[in-house]
Amino acid sequence: MSNEKITITVNGKRYDKEVEPRRLLSDFIRDDLRLTGTHVGCEHGVCGSCTVLMNGKSVRSCLTFAVMADGAEIMTIEGLGTAENMHPLQKGFWEKHGLQCGFCTPGMLMTAVELLKEKPRPSVDEIREALSGNLCRCTGYQTIVESIQRGAEIMQGGK
């Protein structure tokens, strides 16, 4: 199997790499780019931990081949905010205890970023619908919903 040349922009930085056609986007991001914030929980597209944004849309990076992202813009959790300057959603999760072990959190955050782009002030039901494909084993979900509401509030200028 010959390798494919791909060009992918991740968190605003352009990467030119050669990959096997079968290489998963999740492995490409984690192992080739060493951006280990994206987590792999199930490798069959159910848990949602590996969710990243590809051209603004959420995808399961464990069900996407890296070659499919050729030419695309990818955003991972590392592109959101930093510990010194958190994204409003990260602040929301921190304030409302939206994480415990934190393993599913990158997927939750990226899913929430997509949701808030479409619906800046989502209702509880809209948030629950948006998160229906992301599993969390720690929180019981309720504080994740509150975190996203809080994140939305901060984004809208709330304190």
Partner: peptide, 8 residues
Amino acid sequence: DPRILTGR
């Protein structure tokens, strides 16, 4: 949380 929330 800060390091976990930022993927670190």
